[in-house]
């Protein structure tokens, strides 16, 4: 179960996230909890690997929105440039970025005791 302290330690802007959830801490933590999985990130990695950049962009864009709304800053600051590169159809080496994204998610999951 993730806590506010754990999120702060991770670098999330919890004040902002909490405000967006009308100050309801349990609601905020529940939403963060539902975002703590690697499924979407792995899907993104697979789409990039298979050069399916259109779908990859949509996945990245969705993740960017979720992480930004939950103020999970360390995640959104990585997924944002991925989204912009994909939007611009840039064929670059995405692996360092996706690896970093995956690592940060795993770290957050650890903090959540998962």
């Amino acid at each position: 179960m993730i806590t506010m302290d754990a999120l702060k330690a991770f670098g999330a802007n919890t004040d902002e996230g909490l405000k967006r959830c009308m100050g309801k801490e349990s609601f905020y933590l529940m939403l963060v909890g539902s975002a703590l999985n690697c499924d979407q990130i792995n899907k993104l990695i697979d789409q990039i690997k298979s050069e399916n950049y259109g779908d990859a962009f949509e996945t990245a864009h969705a993740l960017k929105g979720i992480y930004a709304n939950l103020s999970l800053t360390p995640l959104s600051e990585i997924v944002s440039p991925i989204t912009e590169h994909l939007r611009a159809n840039e064929v670059i080496d995405y692996i360092p970025l996706t690896d970093e994204l995956l690592a940060r998610m795993k770290k957050l999951m650890e903090l959540a005791g998962m």
């Binding site: 967006r20 959830c21 009308m22 309801k24 609601f27 939403l31 539902s34 975002a35 969705a62 929105g65 979720i66 709304n69 939950l70």
Partner: peptide, 13 residues
Amino acid sequence: DDEIINRMILGNI
């Protein structure tokens, strides 16, 4: 919105 988290945040607001 296709993302449930976004829907729930807005709904809560």
